[in-house]
């Protein structure tokens, strides 16, 4: 626990606070002191009363501003969320496009390696033509025999 001596409206006050909070307490006391000194005339109690009222007014005003700012931050959060979801959608789309491209490349590679299979067709054609030759020769022989 730390002991701090405050000076507000010309009167000293001895106050205890947690260790490490001395500077903050001195700063707050300076704010109160400034308000109290701003009020001319009247008793010390009256000065402190007005200082407290003015600080309460400041606090209320600040709260009002924060409340007004809330919708803006809401819309900002919504905009950020929208942008994030759009970015995620764009990433998904890109990933899908990459996947499609990879599939197309694989298909192309398969087609390029296919000529071995495709080359079987001319071989079949040649075999069919040879069979046609042989059956035609057979037909000629059968016609001669008949």
């Amino acid at each position: 626990m730390a002991d701090v001596k405050l000076m507000i409206a010309g009167r000293p006050y001895d106050v205890h606070c947690a260790d490490g909070e001395e500077a903050q307490l001195l700063q707050l006391a300076a704010v109160v002191d400034e308000k109290a000194r701003g009020i001319q005339g009247g008793t010390e109690v009256r000065q402190l009363l007005f200082a407290a009222l003015m600080l309460a007014d400041d606090a209320q005003e600040a709260r009002g501003k924060a409340d007004k700012a809330e919708p803006q931050s809401d819309s900002l959060r919504a905009a950020v969320a929208l942008a994030e979801s759009r970015e995620a959608a764009a990433r998904d789309e890109l990933r899908a496009a990459v996947t499609r491209e990879q599939a197309a490349l694989k298909e192309l590679e398969a087609l390029r390696s296919a000529p071995a299979a495709a080359s079987a067709k001319p071989a079949h054609d040649r075999a069919l033509l040879q069979i046609a030759d042989r059956i035609e020769a057979l037909a000629t022989k059968v016609e001669q025999i008949s």
Binding site: L129, L138, E143
Partner: peptide, 27 residues
């Protein structure tokens, strides 16, 4: 027409000739 179609046509015609020859009585 590709070669296989031509060959198949020739085979069909030759088979038809064989069929016809077998159906005809000996000369």
């Amino acid at each position: 027409l590709d070669e296989s179609s031509l060959a198949i046509g020739r085979i069909e015609r030759a088979l038809s000739r064989i069929e016809k020859a077998l159906a005809n009585p000996p000369k």
